[in-house]
């Protein structure tokens, strides 16, 4: 049996929503020259959904406009690039190094940045929660003190 559209041989890729018009142009230009990619576009606001889909292995790869866009996703933490299997999901950039070794290094750097940013965010959130609780307690105690003195 033959597939007249050729979709059977095409790889299903998620395209991370462009942040600017120029990123959209880069992504469209890349897809035009890569017939083997079956692209599904995700809006920028759907980063979390995209991250979940990648983790579940629903896509063969993910396409970013460039290194800035990929790094933005890695650092923001909504797409956990460090938790996505390196051998199962192919991370690509519409505008990036053409050689394989360059891309391998960038993929490693992206995963490392995502991991570091996640750890940092977790620690920061913990510290901010404690600080928020301490400051709120001090504020409430001070207000209560003022009210008590006023009543007395």
């Amino acid at each position: 049996m033959t597939d007249p559209t050729g979709t059977a041989n095409r790889m299903k890729f998620a395209v991370r929503g462009p942040r600017t018009a120029s990123e959209r142009e880069q992504l469209e230009a890349y897809l035009k020259t890569h017939d083997d990619i079956d692209a599904e576009w995700f809006e920028l606001r759907d980063d979390e959904e995209l991250g979940t889909a990648l983790k579940e292995g629903l896509y063969r790869g993910c396409l970013f406009a460039d290194l800035d866009a990929a790094m933005d996703a890695a650092v923001a933490g909504r797409i956990r690039l460090d938790e996505i299997g390196a051998d199962t999901v192919d991370l690509r950039m519409a505008r990036g190094p053409s050689d394989a070794s360059g891309m391998t290094s960038i993929r490693l750097a992206l995963r490392s940045a995502a991991r570091t940013a996640a750890a940092r965010r977790q620690a920061e959130t913990g510290r901010q929660t404690i600080a928020g609780m301490v400051l709120s307690a001090v504020l409430l105690a001070a207000i209560a003190g003022l009210l008590l003195i006023r009543r007395g």
Binding site: E124, R127, Q128, I130, A131, G132, L135, S136, V138, L139, A142, I143, G145, L146, I149
Partner: peptide
């Protein structure tokens, strides 16, 4: 003196809380 100290605490801690919420304070 107690009232003065409490007023100063309310104002400064209030500012710190707002800045913390806005990401203008780093806890470190």
């Amino acid at each position: 003196a107690v009232v003065g100290a409490l007023m100063a605490i309310v104002i400064l801690v209030g500012l710190f809380l707002v800045w913390l919420a806005c990401g203008r304070l780093e806890i470190d």
